[in-house]
């Protein structure tokens, strides 16, 4: 009897430990829980080129992460990329003429979207669109441009 009790107790603890570990893995090591609980609002922006921006890339303003990209689509009418991102509701006083830029964290780091404050008195709200955007700087294009320009320089 005592032995059965130990076995059952041990197994119960074991399974609980497993569930705890699984919970830790899904919530703590992935960005799963971020923004799941807090209130957010959705904003869109259109870019000519988004580089390697992906869903879940951070959206930051003045260097502070205030939101996250949730969707990247291609609009076949205007041939632009449509990026949908969410911002936390507590940041509800962001001027609607702010401009969105896609930047790279470090030289080879992942890309993120940065908002630069405008001067408007009206603010971004759910469903609005950021009108001023700057495309991502694609490193390969830069290198290509540099090579090309130095090449033509030699010929002159």
């Amino acid at each position: 009897m005592q032995q059965t009790r130990t076995v059952e107790l041990g197994t119960g603890l074991f399974v609980l430990l497993g569930i705890g570990a699984l919970f830790f893995l899904t919530t703590q090591t992935t960005g799963f829980g971020n923004y799941a609980g807090s209130d957010t609002y959705e904003v869109q922006a259109r870019f000519e080129n988004i580089g390697s921006l992906k869903p879940r890339s951070p959206v930051s303003m003045a260097g502070v992460t205030i939101g996250r990209v949730i969707k990247v689509e291609f609009d076949s009418d205007s041939l632009e990329a449509v990026v949908t991102f969410i911002l936390e509701s507590q940041y509800d006083r962001i001027p609607d003429d702010s401009d969105a830029t896609i930047l790279t964290a470090g030289l080879m780091g992942s890309q993120y979207m940065a908002l630069q404050a405008g001067g408007s008195e009206t603010y971004l709200e759910d469903g609005s669109e950021v009108l001023f955007t700057q495309s991502a700087v694609v490193l390969e294009n830069l290198i290509g441009k540099y090579l090309f320009s130095s090449d033509s320089g030699d010929k002159k």
């Binding site: 699984l22 992935t30 799963f32």
Partner: peptide
């Protein structure tokens, strides 16, 4: 340490392991 992990790791990576 934790932020880099959380930003890049997707729940699907965990599910693959499971």
């Amino acid at each position: 340490f934790w932020q880099q992990m959380q930003q890049t790791l997707e729940p699907s990576d965990i599910y693959e392991g499971i």
